[in-house]
Design a protein around this nucleic acid. Structure first.
Length: 698
DNA sequence: TCAATCCGTATC
DNA sequence: ATACGGATTGAC
């Protein structure tokens, strides 16, 4: 302890001459402190303490981080104001638009602004900032920009985009972007026109099978920047991001956009973030880490495959990229595109509420592009012993053989091993079901006795009802084993696998068996797969999940969309009961019909997204206390409590589900936030996790 | 009547 | 965590 340093008198500080008060969002996790606090701006920080910069302030005796939200002449606070301690960096990293969005997202999810800001603004990386500042200064010297922080490029310098150049010798305005592949969709051309004209259309886009969706999104982005605005596109994983990145480079050229993802290191992530926040690029793409990216003059937000789980943020307050982007579109007056091969129930709700318009192809167009889909009974195993060993029904075997004969690759989709530890008969492969209730049997651990996932009874002395066999094995075999078995069924044909550890982006257009887990299906360089086999579907369909049907269809459509059209010989064989609605939706390639059905079911059952739900998880006492403190909206249904396993495995916690009509959603979130505030003010140690739209429900 | 101490609450 | 205000206590 250096007494000298501690005693050194601080130079007396003067408040700035104008706007001496800074409203600061302090980075403290406590819900009851989730509001701005006012500080005096010392004169020497007058220039740098602008809205959006990171600051350090003394808060309750501690130095904490914060963001300046605004500068004002006076404070409503009655007590004495403290001075800002310092400005961490002059970089205004929190734009007004993102600050507003973050507040709205915190409110929507009963979370704190500080939590959302931690998701929205990447940690500062001083070296990246300095390098970037140097580059900007250089650019300024070259007359490229007047200030260190470059202003967003105006629409004037976007005329050199491919497809937008003025005609040679012509003096007229630049060409309007062509609708391209969007013309195949009803309202598709209108969507692009609206984007190019600076309007804010909202679309639920149901992509055609075989669609080059990155190209379509790139066209939508190009139309948007043609109107002088920026665009933001979020995809689920790195592979989709790579494809979109390539498509944007093809359409916009180099250096017009940045890609943000969690996979980037801190320096690179911050560097790219700064390119957007400084307006040096106006197009940002990325995984959900990009959903809060500062895009200058935002004109379009888009999300591809919004049904993918990866769009749900696992950190508090657990926002979903689709909800964040739609809130953003609403607040910023931007256009929105929610796209995918599947139409999610949430997207269907946007349509039925009139918030968005469908962009989908006419039935005849869909039929022209869809592969021929055939369901087969799981029990019709091929007579060929090699095919039977690979669990291939006759029809699947024939379709694959025919596709290979014509020189096309074949895609085989199998669920991930361990995805669901369901079991089946070793001898006849029939799925093993509980003799008491018909529920699926599962192996809780290797070498354990199989037991029912529904009623919990152990399946002692199990006998297969079909063949009398007494031995069980894991029904989900995994991609590698499937690949080995298929290799024996089709001797001489190369087998490639694509799964969690090694994902193939593309495969050549030549005869091969491509075994992939859902989400890892490679795209064919060329015309598409000759056949797509969807195996082990029982594992997907029997998930106890509210969204099992929708998720199954999403995975099937993603794989089947990679097949050639039926008129070019493209076949899809799905091993499932053709009478199931999910299978029907695939056969008819009608995701809209399925979404309508699903939403109607959810309305009838009072499940999300028709209702708004929240979960409270914690120790029984803590959950009960929070419930007692919360002034829940009238008519809130309280379900539970039920015991749930703790995430750290230390015994059970308790969970309560709350359900309200959608119209009471914000009131529910506000009540939970307020109650959590009372608890944190009382220094309640025992935490309760509050989750709006909890993912484990889906 | 006043200072020392305790406790609850706000945190600018 | 720390600072502050109001209540409480105990000595004169």
């Amino acid at each position: 302890m250096s007494t000298r340093r501690a005693r050194r008198a601080r130079a007396p500080r003067e408040p700035a001459g104008t706007l001496p008060v800074a409203r600061v969002a302090v980075d403290v996790p406590l819900p009851h402190l989730d509001r701005p606090f006012d500080y005096l701006v010392p004169a020497e920080l007058d220039e740098t303490a602008v809205p959006g910069v990171r600051v350090r302030v003394r808060f309750a005796g501690q130095l904490v981080d914060g963001f300046v939200l605004s500068r004002t002449e006076e404070s409503a606070h009655n007590g004495r104001l403290a001075f800002l301690e310092r400005v961490v960096s002059p970089e205004p990293v929190l734009t007004a638009e993102v600050a507003r969005l973050a507040r709205a997202v915190a409110d929507r999810y009963a979370g704190t602004l500080a939590d959302v800001l931690r998701l929205a603004v990447p940690p500062r990386h001083a070296a990246a900032e300095a390098a970037h500042a140097a580059a900007a200064a250089q650019a300024a010297d070259a007359g490229d920009a007047a200030a260190g922080a470059a202003p967003p490029p105006g629409p004037g310098d976007l005329t050199d985009l491919p497809g937008m150049a003025a005609r040679p010798g012509g003096s007229g305005p630049p060409d309007r972007p062509r609708p391209g592949g969007w013309a195949r969709y009803q309202a598709g051309a209108a969507l692009l026109r609206a984007l190019a004209e600076g309007r804010a259309p909202r679309a639920v886009w149901t992509a055609l099978p075989g669609e080059d969706w990155p190209a379509r999104l790139a066209e939508a982005v190009r139309a948007t920047i043609h109107s002088g605005r920026g665009a933001l596109v979020v995809v689920a994983d790195a592979r989709d991001l790579d494809r979109l990145d390539a498509a944007l480079t093809a359409v916009l050229g180099d250096g017009r956009h940045v890609a943000l993802s969690a996979a980037l290191g801190p320096a690179e992530r911050y560097r790219r973030f700064l390119q957007a926040s400084r307006g040096r690029v106006r197009v940002v793409i990325g995984t959900r880490a990009a959903m809060f990216a500062p895009v200058p003059d935002l004109g379009l937000v888009a999300i591809w495959d919004d049904g993918d789980d990866l769009h749900a943020e696992p950190r508090a307050p657990y926002p979903h990229a689709r909800e964040v982007l739609l809130t953003r579109a609403q607040l910023a007056g931007a256009a929105a595109i929610v796209g995918g091969y599947l139409r999610t129930t949430e997207a269907q709700l946007l349509l039925e509420a009139g918030w968005a318009k469908p962009v989908a192809a006419a039935r005849a167009t869909v039929r022209a592009h869809a592969p021929l889909v055939t369901p087969v009974d799981e029990q019709q195993l091929a007579h060929d012993p090699a095919a039977a060993a690979a669990r291939l029904p006759t029809l699947a075997w024939q379709a694959a053989r025919e596709a290979l004969r014509t020189g096309a690759p074949v895609l085989v989709q199998v669920p991930r091993r361990g995805y669901l530890p369901a079991v089946s008969c070793v001898d006849c492969h029939a799925p093993a079901r509980c003799p008491h209730c018909g529920g699926p049997l599962a192996l809780p651990a290797a070498r354990a006795t199989a037991s029912c996932r529904w009623c919990g009874r152990p399946a002692v002395a199990y006998a297969c009802p079909r063949c009398g066999g007494r031995r069980l094995r894991a029904a989900v075999v995994g991609a590698r084993r499937t690949a080995e078995e298929l290799g024996r069924a089709f001797p001489g044909v190369p087998v490639r696998t694509s799964g969690r550890d090694a994902v193939l982006a593309t495969v050549p257009d030549e005869p091969a068996l491509v075994v992939a887990t859902p989400g890892a299906e490679p795209v064919v360089d060329g015309s598409g797969y000759g056949a797509v086999l969807l195996l082990d579907t029982w594992a997907l369909l029997t998930r106890a999940d509210l969204r099992a049907g929708e998720e199954t269809l999403r995975r099937w459509l993603a794989a089947a969309a990679l097949a050639r059209p039926g008129r070019s010989g493209g076949r899809v064989v799905v091993v499932a009961d053709g009478g199931l609605p999910v299978v029907q939706a695939l056969l008819r390639w009608d995701p809209g019909w399925f979404a309508e059905r699903e939403l109607a079911d959810r309305v009838a059952l009072g499940f999300p997204p028709a209702a708004r739900m929240a979960s409270l998880t914690g120790s029984p006492d803590a959950v009960a206390e929070l419930l007692r403190l919360a002034e829940l909206p009238a008519g809130t249904a309280v379900l539970g409590p039920v015991p749930v396993p703790r995430r750290d495995g230390t015994g059970d916690a308790e969970q309560v589900l709350l359900r309200v009509p959608r119209s009471a959603g914000s009131a529910l979130a506000a009540a939970l936030h307020a109650a959590a505030g009372v608890r944190s003010a009382r220094k309640a140690r025992d935490p309760v996790r509050v989750q709006v739209d909890p993912r484990d429900l889906w």
